[in-house]
Simulated scan of single mutants.
Amino acid sequence: MDTFALVVTIAVALGFTYTNGFHDSANAIATSVSTRALTPRAALAMAAVMNLAGAFLGSGVAKTVSEGLIETPVGDKGMGILFAALIGAIAWNLITWYFGLPSSSSHALFGGMVGAALAGGTTVIWSGVIEKIVIPMFLSPFVGLILGYLVMVAIMWMFRRANPHKAKRGFRIAQTVSAAGMALGHGLQDAQKTMGIVVMALVIGDVQGKGDAIPVWVKIACALMLSLGTYAGGWRIMRTLGRKIIELDPPQGFAAETTGASVMFTTAFMFHAPISTTHVITSAIMGVGATKRVNAVRWGVAKNIILGWFITMPAAALVAALAFWGVNLVFG
C-alpha cells in the first residue's frame, strides 16, 4: 500500500472535518446569537471547546460509518474510493456553504461514500444505509419538529404567570447551557463520522485491523479539526437558521437547542445512528416557531432547506463518482 496515498486520504478526511466545522458551527450557536444570549465570538469559542469535548464521549457512530455502510475496500483502488468519497462531500459542503444553505455535512459524506463505492465496484451495505441513514434522515427531523413544539408549549404553560422581561433574561442565561449541549452533541456526532473514515483508511492501509479500537491520535486530530473549523465560523448559514426561518426570542432559542441536543444524544448513545445536526436543529426551530402561529415560520425558506436535504446525498454521490473516475483515469 502506498503510504503517500494513505497520508493524503487522511489529510483530506481532516479537511472534510474542518469544512464540517465551519459549515455546521451555525447549528449549535445560531439561535443563541440571534437572541443575543451570546456574542458571535463567544458562541464560536464555546462551540469549539464543546465540540472538542463531545468527540471523546463515544465511538458507536464511528463504528457505524467505518463498518456499516460500505464493505471496506482494499488496496490502492480502495484508497481511491475513500479519497473520492471525501472529495464529493467537501465539494457539496463548499457549494451549500457558499449559498448559505444549511444542508447536511453528514449526508454529503454518506452520499459521497455510496457514490464512490458504486463507481469503484465496492459493495454498498444497503440495509445499513437504509436503517442507519435514510430512516433517521426522515425520522429525526419529524421528531425534532414535534418535540420542539411540545417543549415550547410546556415552557409557555410553566411560565404563563411569570414576568415576561424577567423570564426572557433567565432564558438568555439558560441558553448558554442549551447551546453548550448542542455543541457537545455536534462533537459527539460529527467528529465520530470522520473518525470512522480515518479508521477505514488505516484498515485499507494495513496499519490496523478491522474492529480495533480507534487510536487516540485519530480522536484528537478529528476533534481538533472540527473545533478549528467551528471557530472559523459559518456566518451565512447562521443567518439562515437564526433569522430567516423565524425571529427567535430566548425561550424559543432554549427550547430549540434543548430539543436538538436531546435528539442527538439519544441517537448517538442508544442507536449509534449518525444523524444530521442540521436536520434536527432546523426542524426544532420550525416546531418551536409554530407555537407562536403557524404562519410565523417562513415556510418558503424551510421549503428550500428541505429541498437541499433531498438533493444532498445524490449530488454528493454524483460528485464522488466523477472524482473516482477522474482519479482512476489519472492514476489507474
Rank of each mutant, 00 (worst) to 15 (best):
Y149W: 14
R160C: 08
K77S: 14
L145R: 07
V134E: 04
R160Y: 06
P164T: 04
R169Q: 13
Y149P: 03
G78F: 09
L101W: 07
V153S: 10
L118V: 14
E131Q: 14
L109Q: 07
S103M: 13
Y149R: 12
P73T: 12
D76C: 00
G144A: 12
S106V: 07
L82T: 13
N93C: 13
S103H: 02
G75T: 07
G100V: 11
G144M: 04
A89I: 08
M79V: 14
I155T: 14
S140E: 10
S140N: 10
E131N: 13
L86S: 10
V74G: 11
T123P: 09
W126Q: 12
F83K: 08
S103V: 15
M158V: 12
A154W: 07
F99H: 12
I81C: 02
V151Q: 08
G115L: 03
T123S: 15
A91H: 00
I146C: 10
A162Q: 11
H107T: 10
G120W: 05
F83N: 06
G111K: 02
P136K: 04
H107M: 11
M137D: 06
A85I: 00
M156V: 13
A91G: 14
W92E: 03
F142E: 00
G100I: 10
I133N: 00
M113S: 10
M152G: 10
V114W: 01
P164I: 05
L101S: 07
R160H: 13
I155H: 02
G148D: 10
A162C: 00
M156N: 14
F99G: 12
S105E: 08
W97E: 07
I87C: 02
A117E: 00
Y98C: 09
F83H: 09
M79G: 12
G100C: 11
G148E: 05
E131T: 15
K168G: 09
E131K: 14
W92M: 10
V124M: 00
F159Y: 15
F138G: 15
T123V: 14
S105V: 11
L147D: 08
N163H: 05
A108W: 01
H165D: 13
P73A: 12
F83C: 10
N163G: 09
I95M: 13
L101C: 12
Y149S: 11
L150G: 01
W97Q: 05
A154L: 14
R169T: 11
I146H: 00
G115C: 09
G148A: 08
V153P: 00
S106Q: 05
V74E: 13
G128Y: 05
T122Q: 05
R160N: 13
V74D: 08
A85P: 06
G112A: 09
G120V: 04
A117I: 06
A85S: 12
M137F: 13
P73H: 09
T122G: 10
A117H: 06
G111F: 03
F138S: 12
L86T: 10
W157Y: 11
P136E: 04
H107C: 11
A85D: 02
G115A: 11
G144H: 02
I135G: 03
G75S: 04
A119R: 05
T122V: 15
A108L: 08
V129A: 08
V134C: 03
S106T: 15
W157I: 14
A89M: 06
